[in-house]
Simulated assay, not measured.
Amino acid sequence: MIPLQHIRKTEETDEALLQAYKQTGDQELLARLYLRYSDLVYGTCLKYLKDGELAKDAVMNIYHELLLKLNNHSVDNFKGWLYVLAKNHCLMYLRSAKKNVTVEFQQEIMQSVEFSHLDNVLEREQEFKSLENCIETLSADQKLSIRLFYLESKCYNEIVEETGLEWNKVRSLIQNGRRNLKICMEKNG
Rank of each mutant, 00 (worst) to 15 (best):
L30P: 00
C184Q: 02
K182N: 02
K169H: 12
Y42E: 08
L67N: 01
Y93N: 05
W167R: 15
E114M: 03
Q27P: 03
I2M: 03
E65A: 14
L68H: 07
I183D: 09
N168A: 14
E132T: 12
Q111R: 10
V113A: 09
S130A: 10
E108C: 02
E158A: 10
L138I: 01
L151T: 00
S112R: 05
L151H: 05
G80N: 07
Q23Y: 14
I2V: 08
G52T: 09
E125M: 01
N180Y: 14
E12K: 12
T137A: 10
V84P: 04
S96Q: 10
S153G: 11
F128P: 01
H117A: 15
S139C: 04
V103L: 08
K129Q: 15
S74L: 15
S96F: 10
L85M: 12
Y156L: 02
L46W: 08
L131N: 07
L35C: 10
K154Y: 02
E53L: 11
L67R: 10
N61D: 10
S153R: 05
L181R: 01
L165A: 03
C155Y: 02
A97R: 15
Y83A: 06
R179Q: 09
M185H: 06
M1Q: 07
R171C: 13
E127T: 04
E161H: 03
E15W: 05
Y34P: 00
C90V: 04
C184P: 08
E186H: 14
E158K: 06
T10H: 12
